[in-house]
Nucleic acid binder design. Structure first.
Lengths: 198, 198
DNA sequence: GTCTATATCTCGATAGAC
DNA sequence: GTCTATCGAGATATAGAC
């Protein structure tokens, strides 16, 4: 009996239900605003049982962020290898980035916003993954500028605009909302390439 | 003689030194990652003395966010009233928004990221201020679209791209860095109006 | 307006039985 | 692999002297 405050899917392995509950809570309240007691309550187990699956609260955060960054890097490699010219590479990579941020809203929001909550070693690792990811976009951007496809804007500001735009998406995108994911991706790609002027 | 961990400016009124220390700490570690003990230690007073100036930790956050939103709204009004056509209005408002986010990095970052840490009443108030602010930008955007100055992109996505871009600025802009604030503002305005294509 | 002292609560994490 | 029980630390906030 004792059905307290369970809400996570019940026929998955416990470790996945823990991860899922942690993602939900850290998305809503942030890492420091989430307690291991709340995570346990959502899963429907005792707090001490969490520590059989994860050695610490920090390790839960690292697991979420590391897998998200690895997914992004893998997807970006695949997408960019399939294209040859810089504009197609960038366009498809942006579409992928938008799509993954929409489909894994919570994980991506946590990954984009909780770097400061990582301890020293984990932060170095995640920042390094993030830098590799960013470098792939920068490479296509600079190649396009050298080829004359793109104007000579400062790459760091251009990338900051791009990643800033998309990292806000998990806070306003709602699946099944007014605009389809494709329509949103189109609009963001358009903003990046041609802006708002006619 | 007990010079612990003071670092805040020492000849300001205590309430302002408290606010400043709180801004620094909440920028670095977030609202839930910041303790009243740490704030007091930075100011160089005892934790209980904080409560003579602010009734709660929550009230400190509300003070920071409310004054930041009021500043932004006042500045946007002034800037937009000084222009007549939508494109000049939007361009100058963006410049102002960038500039204030650069000059008050920490307050703006907190205001952009800690809405979820507000209690119910305060959240309603701040969200309402944020909506008013956003509506000013939307008005000029839609007016420009009706006038044929801007293409017919979805206003919500366009504004999300704009505010997403600029709310990330406090995390990477460093005063005295490689690019001047003017150069950064120019680049962001260009991204918004014409994008990266030649 | 700042202090010392403390009340009350919640936190992450561990011990050890089953 | 989950449980009960608890530890020790640190959290917000308050009481009351000066």
């Amino acid at each position: 009996m004792s059905s307290t405050a369970t809400s996570a899917p019940t026929n998955l392995p416990t470790i996945e239900r823990i991860r899922s509950a942690a993602v939900d809570l850290m998305f809503e309240r942030g890492f420091h605003g989430t307690s291991m007691r709340e995570v346990a309550a959502r899963v429907g187990i005792q707090m001490s049982s969490l520590y059989h699956h994860y050695p610490s609260k920090q390790s839960l955060l690292v697991d979420i962020m590391e897998s998200t960054m690895n997914d992004l890097i893998g997807l970006a490699k695949r997408v960019m290898d399939a294209e040859t010219d810089p504009k197609s590479q960038l366009g498809e990579a942006i579409r992928m980035h938008v799509s993954y941020h929409a489909q894994r809203r919570k994980e991506n929001f946590i990954t984009d916003s909780e770097i400061r909550s990582l301890d020293e070693d984990a932060r170095a690792k995640i920042v390094s993954l993030r830098d590799s990811y960013s470098a792939m976009f920068r490479k296509s951007l600079v190649a396009g500028q050298k080829a004359g496809t793109f104007r000579s804007a400062d790459p760091s500001v251009v990338l900051a605009a791009l990643f800033g735009t998309i990292s806000s998406l998990p806070t306003w995108y709602k699946p099944g909302g007014r605009l389809s994911l494709d329509a949103i991706a189109d609009e963001i790609v358009n903003m990046f390439f041609i802006g708002i002027d006619v």
